[in-house]
């Protein structure tokens, strides 16, 4: 029976033996469910165990305890053809051109070599394809890594900080690319520090700290950890609007920039407009308040340590 989750991790533990010192616990009882389809963000500060978890998923590291299943299989070699991955900085043969590197990988993965040009095009590396990888910039190596991932035409992409070293245009390209891949029905699992990027493209996230998962679920839900939903309301008669809304059961406060912060469920937008309109207050702006993932992240990961 195949599970609906693309990745399932249960009570995963990994400790590394260190010379002359106590063991280092990198992952400490992690449970994770990554639904198939969509972009899943895997967040956490440096050293929180993201890369180690990814290495466990890909069979590079043997878990001390617990289990990982990828595309319904606990034995990674069975599904390797369907999983494209980047672990930390992608490594290639410096002496070979980008194209030659991809051709070699295509040969290893028994993927038609005709795909190489297409993926180089897709990551915008066609021009530099025949230069030696040694001469590539960090961002270009990162793109080549993405190209290698796409070469497999994978169902699941496991990407460890794919945006590392990309310029703003590159970031946007990767963002769009990942979004497109998810829209094609693939599952994208990315670890990242770039919370703004993650917030822009991820459907769900998990936040790691010290080897444990401290929050996971759809992005909106995780964001609600910080006081639930609220709207930003701007209107001509702000003081009056505030008392009207508070009386109507929507606690409101001044934000200090000629607008109100109105605590209400997402679905309440229409009712807020109506409530104010009935009192002849016509609002000029109504938008959900953005809670940044960064704020949540710092709050959550801050008080654990």
């Amino acid at each position: 029976m195949r599970s609906v989750n693309a990745i399932e991790v249960s009570s995963l533990r990994k400790s590394f033996r260190r010379r002359f010192r106590s063991e280092k616990i990198a992952v400490d009882g992690l449970d994770l469910e990554v639904p198939a389809g969509g972009v899943y963000g895997f967040l956490g500060p440096n050293g929180s165990g993201k890369t180690t978890t990814i290495r466990c998923l890909l069979g590079l590291v043997r878990p001390t305890d617990g289990e990982c299943s990828v595309l319904g299989s606990t034995h990674f070699p069975e599904v390797v053809r369907r999983v494209g991955s980047i672990v930390e900085t992608p490594t290639f043969f410096g002496g070979f051109s980008g194209r030659r590197n991809l051709e070699l990988l295509a040969q290893i993965g028994e993927v038609p070599r005709t795909r190489v040009d297409g993926v180089l095009e897709r990551v915008d590396l066609a021009e530099a394809a025949d230069d030696r990888v040694r001469t590539y910039s960090l961002g270009m190596k990162q793109r080549l890594g993405m190209a290698a991932v796409l070469l497999k035409d994978p169902e699941l992409l496991v990407l460890d900080e794919p945006a590392n070293g990309l310029d703003p245009a590159g970031l946007k390209e990767v963002r769009d690319l990942l979004r497109d891949l998810a829209d094609e029905g693939r599952t994208v699992f990315i670890s990242s520090h770039l919370l703004h990027e993650v917030q822009l493209i991820c459907d769900s996230v998990a936040i790691m700290s010290h080897g444990r998962c401290i929050a996971q679920g759809p992005v909106d839900e995780v964001l609600q950890v910080r006081g639930g939903n609220a709207f930003v309301v701007r209107a001509p008669k702000l003081r009056e609007a505030k008392s009207v809304l508070t009386k109507a059961g929507y606690p409101s406060t001044f934000r200090g920039d000629q607008s109100l912060r109105v605590v209400a469920d997402v679905s309440a937008a229409g009712r807020i407009t109506k409530t104010l309109a009935e009192k002849s207050i016509y609002l000029t702006e109504l938008r959900p308040e953005e809670i940044s993932l960064e704020a949540v992240f710092l709050e959550l990961t801050g008080d654990v340590s």
Binding site: L58, G59, L60, F76, P77, V80, S85, V87, E88, T89, P90, T91, F92, F93, G94, L105, I108, G109, A148
Partner: peptide
């Protein structure tokens, strides 16, 4: 030394 083994193993884990 180059870390290429990781790349190889993500293509052929056996």
């Amino acid at each position: 030394a180059t870390g290429m083994m990781t790349t190889t193993l993500t293509w052929e884990p056996r």
